[in-house]
C-alpha cells in the first residue's frame, strides 16, 4: 500500500467529525464533546505555540459579537402608571389634611347645642298612669308606660349626638 493508495480512501464519518471538532478547537480554544482528549491536547499545544494563547483582535470581536447576540435580552421593567407616581404625595397630602382637621377639632372641642332637643311628647296613657301613681295607685303601670317613652326619648337623643 502506497501513500497514494492511502489518499484514495474516503474518510469515515467519525474521522470527519473528529476533524471538524479539531478545527473548531484550534479556532476557538475550546473543545466539543466529539473531540478525543489527546487530539484536544495536541490542538491546545499547537494553538498555544502559535500565539501564546492570545486572542486575535478580530477573533475577540467575533466572540464578543456572538456573546451579545446569544445573550438573553433583559426583560424591560414594567412601566409604572402615572397614578402610582402620584399616590405617595397625594396620600401624604390627604393624611396631613386629615391630621390638621383632627387637630382643629381637638382644640376647639365639641359643639354644644344651644337649645334642648325636641323630644317625643308623652302619650295620654303614660300621663294617666302617672296621675294614678300620684293618687296612690300601683306605679307598675307608670313603669311600663315609661319604658316605651324612654326608648323613644333615648333614640332621639342618641341621633342628636351621634357623629
Amino acid at each position: 500500500m502506497t501513500e497514494d493508495d492511502d489518499m484514495d480512501f474516503e474518510p469515515t464519518e467519525e474521522e470527519l467529525r473528529e476533524a471538524a471538532a479539531l478545527a473548531r478547537a484550534l479556532d476557538r480554544g475550546s473543545a466539543d464533546d466529539g473531540l478525543p482528549d489527546d487530539a484536544f491536547e495536541i490542538a491546545a499545544m499547537l494553538r498555544f505555540g502559535a500565539d501564546g494563547g492570545e486572542l486575535a483582535d478580530d477573533r475577540s470581536d467575533a466572540i464578543l459579537e456572538e456573546a451579545l447576540r446569544t445573550a438573553r435580552p433583559r426583560r424591560p421593567r414594567a412601566e409604572k402608571g402615572a397614578w402610582w407616581r402620584w399616590l405617595v404625595p397625594a396620600g401624604l397630602v390627604t393624611a396631613a389634611a386629615a391630621a390638621a382637621l383632627i387637630g382643629v377639632l381637638a382644640t376647639t372641642g365639641p359643639e354644644v347645642p344651644t337649645t334642648a332637643a325636641v323630644l317625643p311628647e308623652p302619650s295620654s296613657a303614660l300621663l294617666q298612669a302617672q296621675a294614678a301613681a300620684a293618687a296612690g295607685d300601683d306605679p307598675a303601670a307608670l313603669d311600663r308606660a315609661m319604658a316605651a317613652h324612654r326608648a323613644e326619648v333615648m333614640q332621639r337623643l342618641a341621633e342628636r349626638y351621634e357623629r
Partner: peptide
C-alpha cells in the same frame, strides 16, 4: 356629663 351635651338634654 360630657361637655358637649346640652344641659337640658
Amino acid at each position: 356629663v360630657p361637655p358637649g351635651v346640652q344641659s337640658d338634654d
